[in-house]
Design a protein around this nucleic acid. Structure first.
Lengths: 341, 341
DNA sequence: TGTATTAATGGAACGGGTTCCAAACTAGAC
DNA sequence: GTCTAGTTTGGAACCCGTTCCATTAATACA
C-alpha cells in the first residue's frame, strides 16, 4: 500500500542504504544523489514506517508521562506544555494517569518491564528509592516536574521564594501577625515537599525583618477546605489573633475565608488571606494568591528531557522557576492601619 | 539485554513459531509444550518487543485521540474515560491537542499520512467531508465522541433533551422570562453543534407550553466567564429582564452569577441560574446544572471503537446518552411568586 | 499392517527500516 | 601511468516478532 524505502530506492535508481542516509541527513551522500532521492520521496509521497525505524534503532522514540490527579487543572496545564513541545518532535507521548497507589506501582513496574519509553516525565510525585533504581537500571532517562528529589534532573517551582513572596506581600500591607496553614509536610504518600518549602519561605520572610515565629500561628492539617476552616476558627479564638493568613493552597485559603465569614470578619478589612496555586476558581472568588508557571514547567521539563536524551549526559540538572504574586481582593492593610489612615 | 523470542525458544527447546503460538493463544500447541514455553517465559522474564510485533502484524496497536480545548474540564473528564479503558488493553494512546485551525488541519493530515494509529477518537469536533474521506481511505476506524455527524459511529449527548430539561426545570419553578446564553453555534471553526442543540431544547421547551421566544433574551458570545458576565448585564438592563438564565455551559453560568452579584441581585431570589456540564467547581459554587455523563462518553466511545476494530464491522452505530438535572442552590421560584407565597 | 487424516512443530520468509562492510570511483601525488 | 587516500555507493545482515509451509508424529480407519 504505502511505499517503502525499497520503492524509493528503485525509483531513484540507488540502494536502500543511500535513501536511509538521505533521510537521516548523513553527509556521505553527493548532492546530486541527494536530490534524486528527494525527488523520489516527493513523487512517491513516501513516509518512513515509524515502527520499523524504532525496531531497527532499538529506541522507542516515545516519552512517557506519569501524572497523578490527571484531572486537576494544574496538572492539565503542565500536560499541555509537555504535549506542545513534543508535537514538534519525532517523539510520541504516552500518558499514564495515576489515581491510586496500586496504579502507581503498576505504572512504574510496567514502564520498566515493557520498555516502551526512552524518557519519562514524572509530574508532581517523587519516585522512591526503589523506583528510581529500577528506572536507572532500565536506562530510562527521567526528569521530574514539580517535585524535588535527589535522583533525577528536575524542573520545579521555587516554593521557598513563593512562600516568602506571599508573606512579604502581607508584611508590605502592614501585617505583623501572620498565620500559616498548610498540608502536612513531606512524608505524605507521594513524597512531595512543596508544603514544607512554602513554610520555610514564610519563616524566612518573618525572620528577615525580625518578626517572631509564633507556633500558635502555624497549623498543618489535611488538604481540604473543611479542615482549613476549622483551623482558621482556632486562629480567631486566640487572644491575639492573626490579622492575615497565608494558606499554602488556594483550597485551604477558601476554608479560611469561609471561617472568616462565619465569624463575621470582613475580608480584607478584618482579615487578609493569601493563597497559593492560582487555580481556576481563585480568580472568580477574588483571592489574592501565588501563581506558579504551570505551562512553563511542562515546556521546560520536556525540553530538558529531550536535551538529556540527545546529549546522553548524566549530570543532574535542576531548573527552578519563580512564582508571581497575583493581587486580588482578599488582601489589604490590617484594621488598625485602616483606622489610623 | 532484554530477552527475545529466540532466547525463549532456545531455553524451552522449541522453535520460535511455537513460542509465538503460545504467546498468541493458538490452540495448535500441546499442553506439555505450552507449559514448557510458559516456564521459559517466566524464567527469562520475557516481554515481547511491541514494535517488532506491530511491524510484523502491520498494525499500530495505537488509538489516536483528537481533542480541542484540551484544558477544559469537560474534555479532560472524557480523556480520563478513554485512558481508563485503554489502560487495560494492548493499545497505546496518542493524544493530539488542537488549539488552532492550523493545528487541526495538520493533525488530520498527519494522522492519515503517517499512519500511526489503527483507530481514532474524535472528541467534540466533527470531521468535515474531506477529512472523513481521507480517514476512510487510510482505513482508520473512527468514532466520534460528543458530536453528531453522518460519517462515523458516535457516542453523543442528547443535548436537545438536556436543553429542554434545563428550561423545563426553570419553567417548573414558575419562570416565564428565561434568558439563554451560549457560545456561538455550530458553524464555528470546529463544527460542534452541541450549543445549537441546547438552544433547540430551550426553544422547544418554551414553545411546548406556549411561551414566546424573545430574541432579546437570547445571546451568543465567546465561551468565557467574562463575556457571559457582560451579556448578563445587558439582560439586567432590559425593561423586562429575565428572572432566570439558562447558560449553555457552567463557565458561562458563573459569569452570569458574577454579574448578578455586581448588580446586587440575590441568587436565587432575584435571579435563577442554571448551567450545563456540571464541571468540578460547580458543586462548590452550588450551581444548579445539567450533568452530562462525561467520563461515560469517553468510556463508551472507546469501547465502541475497540468493538469495531475487533469485529471489522462498518455499520454506523450511534449511542446517545441522557443528561441529568442536578439541582443545587442557584434556582428557585421567581420573586413575584416568592411574594405571592 | 498399511494408509489417510489430523495434530504439533521447526524454521524460513517477511515486515521496513539502519548500519556496517566491501567495492567502485575520484582526485591528487609522484 | 601508477599508487594512495578519500569519497560514494550498494546491499547484506540485523532488529524481533508473525505466519506460512513443510515435516514429523500420532491417531483413526479399513
Amino acid at each position: 500500500m504505502a511505499s517503502t524505502i525499497k520503492d524509493v530506492a528503485k525509483y531513484a535508481g540507488v540502494g536502500v542504504g543511500t535513501v536511509s542516509r538521505v533521510l537521516n541527513g548523513s553527509s556521505l551522500v553527493s548532492n546530486e544523489t541527494r536530490e534524486k532521492v528527494r525527488t523520489a520521496i516527493r513523487d512517491l509521497d513516501y513516509v518512513p514506517n515509524t515502527f520499523a525505524r524504532r525496531l531497527s534503532l532499538g529506541k522507542t522514540l516515545t516519552i512517557g508521562v506519569i501524572a497523578p490527579w490527571f484531572t486537576r487543572p494544574s496538572v492539565v496545564e503542565r500536560l499541555r506544555g509537555i504535549e506542545q513541545v513534543l508535537a514538534d518532535t519525532q517523539y510520541d507521548l504516552n500518558i499514564f494517569n495515576i489515581e491510586t497507589i496500586e496504579r502507581r506501582k503498576r505504572c512504574f513496574a510496567d514502564i520498566v518491564r515493557y520498555g516502551k519509553v526512552d524518557g519519562l516525565l514524572v509530574v508532581s510525585i517523587i519516585p522512591n528509592e526503589e523506583e528510581a533504581k529500577k528506572l536507572k537500571e532500565a536506562n530510562i532517562t527521567t526528569v521530574q516536574i514539580d517535585a524535588r528529589g535527589y535522583f533525577f534532573s528536575q524542573v520545579a517551582i521555587d516554593d521557598i521564594n513563593g512562600g516568602m513572596d506571599a508573606t512579604n506581600h502581607l508584611i508590605a500591607k502592614g501585617h505583623k501577625n501572620i498565620g500559616f496553614i498548610s498540608d502536612y509536610f513531606s512524608s505524605n504518600s507521594l513524597g512531595n515537599n512543596s508544603q514544607e518549602h512554602r513554610f520555610i519561605g514564610y519563616k524566612q520572610a518573618l525572620e528577615a525583618i525580625g518578626l517572631p515565629i509564633r507556633s500558635e500561628y502555624i497549623r498543618q492539617c489535611p488538604h481540604s477546605r473543611e479542615m482549613a476552616r476549622q483551623n482558621a476558627h482556632e486562629f480567631f479564638a486566640l487572644p491575639d489573633p492573626p490579622t492575615a493568613v497565608f494558606a499554602a493552597s488556594d483550597t485551604q485559603a477558601f476554608g479560611v475565608m469561609e471561617a472568616a465569614q462565619e465569624r463575621g470578619l470582613q475580608i480584607p478589612k478584618d482579615l487578609s488571606v493569601i493563597g497559593y496555586d492560582d487555580i481556576e476558581i481563585s480568580a472568580y472568588l477574588n483571592l489574592t494568591t501565588i501563581r506558579q508557571p504551570l505551562l512553563e514547567t511542562g515546556i521546560q521539563g520536556t525540553e530538558l528531557l529531550l536535551r538529556i536524551l540527545a546529549s546522553g549526559s548524566d549530570v543532574i540538572e535542576k531548573i527552578i522557576l519563580p512564582t508571581d504574586v497575583i493581587e486580588r481582593g482578599t488582601t489589604g492593610p490590617p484594621r488598625n492601619l485602616n483606622i489610623e489612615n
